[in-house]
Simulated assay, not measured.
Amino acid sequence: MGKNYNPSRVKINRSYTVIEVSEILEVHPKTVRNWIHAGLPLVDEKRPLLIDGVDLRIHLKRKRKADMYPCKAHEMYCFKCREPKSPCVESLQFIAKPAGMAQMSGHCCECGCHANKYVSWRDVNQIWVELGGKLPIAEKHLILMGQALLNCPLAEVFDHE
């Protein structure tokens, strides 16, 4: 997996030489020539080699899309294993973020590498159950305000009911 190049730095109604593309995207000219050999279309075969801005932007977007790895709701991408993995239930935490989001944080079960993922707050219970965690049982006779539950995946303590 390579560096992500910003396609919005390329103007679509311009033609670029290999050197101009390398300066805009801050890559070596040989990298741009490798993209041409890999299928980046040219305006014509004459020198200097010209690349349309539209074609370059489309090529960069396709390259970025090819580098993405789809994960299921209960999986996180492990950079050490280089594939989506389920995190260990013991290390899993959900941290509340603004706008109904939660940061899912945990360790890979196989290699122990730390990983993060943002999920919707309403999916937290489903993810927790899919991973085999036990949901906390609400008992009315216990006052748990200001205390963290031992079997709850939430990292924060809520002071309201």
Results as ranks from 00 to 15, higher is better:
L60H: 05
N116P: 04
E130N: 09
K11Y: 05
G106I: 07
V157T: 12
L49Q: 07
R64I: 15
C109D: 08
R47N: 09
L42I: 03
F79S: 08
V89K: 02
C71Q: 08
G146Y: 11
K85E: 04
N34S: 10
V129T: 09
T31A: 07
D52M: 09
P84I: 01
C111R: 00
R33Q: 08
K97G: 06
E45R: 12
N4I: 12
A96Q: 07
P41E: 00
S105R: 11
V32F: 01
F79V: 08
S22M: 03
S105V: 11
G53K: 03
V10T: 00
M1V: 12
D123I: 13
L50P: 02
G146P: 12
Q93F: 05
M76L: 01
A66W: 08
L150G: 10
L92W: 06
I127E: 01
I127L: 03
H141Q: 09
R122S: 14
L40Q: 07
R33H: 05
G53C: 03
P84S: 03
V89S: 11
Y16L: 00
Q147T: 15
L131A: 01
A96P: 07
I24G: 00
D67S: 15
V54Q: 07
Q126M: 12
S105A: 15
S120F: 08
L60K: 02
S86P: 02
K30R: 05
A99P: 04
R62G: 12
G53A: 03
A73W: 08
P70W: 02
C88E: 14
D123M: 13
A148M: 14
I127W: 02
D55I: 01
N4T: 09
L142D: 05
P29R: 04
P48G: 05
H37A: 15
V124D: 07
S91Q: 06
R122E: 14
P7N: 02
V54W: 03
K46A: 15
H160W: 11
L154H: 13
N151A: 10
Y5V: 05
